[in-house]
Amino acid sequence: MSDKVPLTKKGAEKLREELQRLKMVDRPRIIAAIAEARAHGDLKENAEYHAAREQQSFAEGRIKEIDGKLSNATIIDVTELDAGGKVVFGATVVIVDEDTGDEVTYQIVGEDEANIKEGRISFSSPIARALIGKFQDDVVTVVTPGGEKTFEIVEVRYE
C-alpha cells in the first residue's frame, strides 16, 4: 500500500470518524469484555472470552487498515475544484442513458468510498473511467457485461 490513494474530503472524514469510534468506544468496550470473561475462570471453554478476543482482533485489524489508508491518502476537497466543467475525481455527474432516457447521478470517488446505492462509484469502475476527462454534453460509450451503453453527460458539479 505504498501508492497514494485518492479520497474525497467527506470520505476521509468518515474514515476518521470510524477510527475515532474504534479507538475510543469499541476498543475499551472489548477490553472490558475480555477482562470480565477472564474473571469467569477457565479460558479454554469460555465462549465469551473467545468471542471478545475475536472482536478485538477484528477491531485492531480495522484500526490498522484505516490508519494505513489515511496515511496513504491524497485528500481532495471537491468543493475547491475548478476543473472548468471537466469530469474529474470527486465530481458529481448527471448522465442520461441514450437508449432508455433514464437519468442517473454518480459521484466519482475512491474505492473505499464507493457505494452504488448512494450513487458513489469508484474512479476505477468502467463508467467512471469512461466519464473522466469528458465535459457536459459529451457522449460516452461504456462497455458493460450486457453490451455497450451510450450516455450523454447532462451536468457536472463539484459539491
Rank of each mutant, 00 (worst) to 15 (best):
E103W: 06
R129D: 04
V139H: 00
A52G: 02
P145C: 14
V140K: 03
D112Y: 14
L43S: 02
I63V: 06
A73M: 06
E159D: 15
E18F: 05
G133C: 08
I34V: 12
K86Y: 07
Y106P: 00
T144V: 01
E159C: 12
L81P: 06
V109G: 09
F58H: 14
E17I: 09
A47R: 09
K149T: 07
V96T: 02
E60Q: 09
D77A: 10
A59N: 06
Q107K: 15
D67M: 10
A32Q: 12
E65C: 10
E45V: 05
D138N: 01
L131N: 00
F89Q: 03
R62C: 03
Y106H: 05
V109A: 10
K14H: 12
T105I: 10
K69V: 14
L43N: 00
G146R: 14
A47E: 12
G147C: 02
K44A: 03
K134Q: 05
Y106N: 01
T105G: 09
V104D: 13
S2H: 10
Q55G: 10
K69I: 15
E60S: 08
I95K: 01
G119M: 07
V25K: 04
L15G: 03
L81Q: 15
L22K: 06
E80M: 15
A32L: 07
E13T: 08
S2I: 13
D77V: 10
V88C: 01
E98G: 00
V104F: 13
R53D: 01
I63K: 03
G41V: 05
G146F: 11
I116V: 15
R120C: 02
T92H: 02
V142A: 05
E159Y: 10
K9S: 13
T8W: 00
D67F: 08
E103S: 09
S124I: 12
I116L: 15
H40M: 14
R129M: 00
A73C: 00
I34Q: 00
K9L: 15
V5M: 14
A39E: 07
D102G: 06
H40W: 03
F58I: 15
I31N: 13
A59G: 12
V156C: 05
